[in-house]
Amino acid sequence: MKRYLHRLILPLLLLALWLFLNDTASPAQIALGAVLALFLGWAAMALRPLQAYPKKPLVALALIGHVAVDIFKSNIAVARIIWLGRKANATPGFVKIPLRIRDPHGLAALACIVTYTPGTVWSDYSENDDLLVLHVLDLKDEQLWLHTIQHRYERPLMEIFE
């Protein structure tokens, strides 16, 4: 029973989004949205052979909060570098970070977190060495980046996905 309810989450979200974007709850829009949501939900399930079953929603909420704060701080730091130009003394560089996370959904979430944060770019990931190469716009303290990625992001993602 839980498996069938899990498969209805995406179609229900798509139906709600359809009704919200159309700004109406007429029977015709509900019927059309339900058909589209069921079809698109079925098509999306076929494209994802490996399903994610996240655990610990409170850890996920805390991670979302940490990421939001970090994105805000990074926006300010990057804006400062852009406005000050050469006076900011930015030192771009690459940092190699060993990772322990193996779940592909957790790795994808980590890649999104790094990509969303201004001033950082996921440059490379070696599955053989489990090594992430990260480009940082202002790399003053390599240990800070190691700690941030491994403890602030990777550890909660491992709790959520592994």
Rank of each mutant, 00 (worst) to 15 (best):
K2T: 15
R3G: 08
R3C: 00
R3K: 10
R3F: 00
Y4S: 06
Y4G: 11
H6M: 11
R7G: 15
R7W: 07
R7Q: 14
L8G: 14
P11K: 03
P11F: 03
L12C: 09
L12W: 03
L15I: 05
L15S: 03
L15Y: 03
L17E: 05
L17N: 05
W18I: 01
F20E: 02
N22H: 04
A25V: 13
Q29M: 15
Q29I: 07
A31T: 06
L32P: 03
L38A: 13
L40T: 14
G41V: 10
W42Y: 09
A43G: 00
A43N: 00
A43C: 12
M45K: 09
A46R: 15
A46P: 01
L47S: 12
P49I: 12
P49S: 13
L50G: 11
Q51L: 12
Q51G: 06
Y53Q: 14
P54H: 08
K56W: 11
P57C: 09
V59W: 10
L63Y: 09
L63C: 13
G65L: 06
H66P: 00
H66C: 03
V67G: 01
V69P: 00
V69S: 00
K73N: 06
N75H: 10
I76Y: 06
I76W: 08
I76V: 13
A77R: 06
A79G: 12
R80M: 11
I81W: 03
I81K: 07
I81V: 09
I82E: 02
W83T: 14
G85Q: 06
R86D: 07
R86G: 12
R86S: 11
K87N: 04
A90V: 08
T91S: 10
P92V: 02
P92Y: 04
G93Q: 02
G93C: 03
F94M: 11
V95Y: 03
P98S: 02
L99M: 05
I101T: 13
P104S: 11
H105V: 04
H105I: 02
H105E: 07
L107C: 00
A108Q: 09
A109V: 07
A109F: 07
L110T: 10
C112P: 00
I113R: 01
T115E: 08
T115Q: 10
Y116I: 04
G119A: 05
V121A: 14
W122G: 05
Y125F: 14
S126D: 15
E127F: 01
N128K: 07
N128T: 12
D130G: 05
L132G: 09
V133G: 01
H135L: 01
H135E: 15
V136L: 00
L137H: 10
D138P: 03
L139Q: 08
D141T: 06
D141Y: 05
E142A: 13
Q143K: 12
L146I: 04
L146Y: 03
H147S: 12
H151P: 00
R152K: 11
R152F: 00
E154W: 12
P156M: 09
P156E: 09
P156D: 08
P156N: 10
P156H: 12
L157F: 07
L157W: 06
L157R: 13
E159R: 13
E159F: 06
I160Q: 09
F161M: 12
E162Q: 07
